[in-house]
């Protein structure tokens, strides 16, 4: 075997990798767009929600928030995922999480959260 042949294959691999990253970036970017609303079809999917807190309940280990975006979405956040996060009405948040059904209504179980305004 020749080193040049290996390097040529490696070069083709890098280009193929860039191409796959390029294609994937389009798909992932689409998934990362904030959802306008959630429906039954979204159940089990990871989505991004951006909006303003209009109401919330804070327990020992859990925060349940209603986020307006402009339709209202219920977000459940375990406190270990929201350390150092100050919750207040009117705070703009970005939440990534999974859509789940609980007692007949859909909610987002937050995995990552950050304040955006």
């Amino acid at each position: 075997m020749n080193e040049r042949l290996m390097l040529l294959t490696a070069f083709i691999c890098s280009i193929a990798g860039i191409f796959v990253i390029y294609i994937s970036s389009g798909v992932i970017e689409g998934m990362m767009q904030p959802a306008d609303s959630i429906s039954l079809e979204d159940e089990g999917r990871n989505i991004k929600v951006q909006g303003k807190i209009v109401d919330y309940y804070e327990g020992d280990n859990i925060v349940i928030m209603e986020i307006e975006k402009p339709s209202v979405v219920k977000v459940v956040l375990f406190k270990n995922k929201a350390r150092n996060l100050s919750i207040a009405e009117g705070t703009q948040l970005e939440i990534m999480g999974k859509v789940e059904e609980y007692e007949g209504s859909l909610e987002v179980i937050g995995n990552r959260v950050r304040v955006i305004g």
């Binding site: 390097l7 490696a10 691999c13 890098s14 990798g17 796959v20 990253i21 995995n111």
Partner: peptide, 28 residues
């Protein structure tokens, strides 16, 4: 990331391809 779905897996395979190719040049 919590859960890696199929799209994310494809992205990581693409990243691995890119990194493996570059790493071959770099290591040599």
């Amino acid at each position: 990331i919590d859960k890696v779905d199929f799209n994310m897996l494809i992205l990581f395979i693409g990243t691995s391809l890119f990194a493996a190719g570059i790493a071959t040049f770099l290591t040599l």
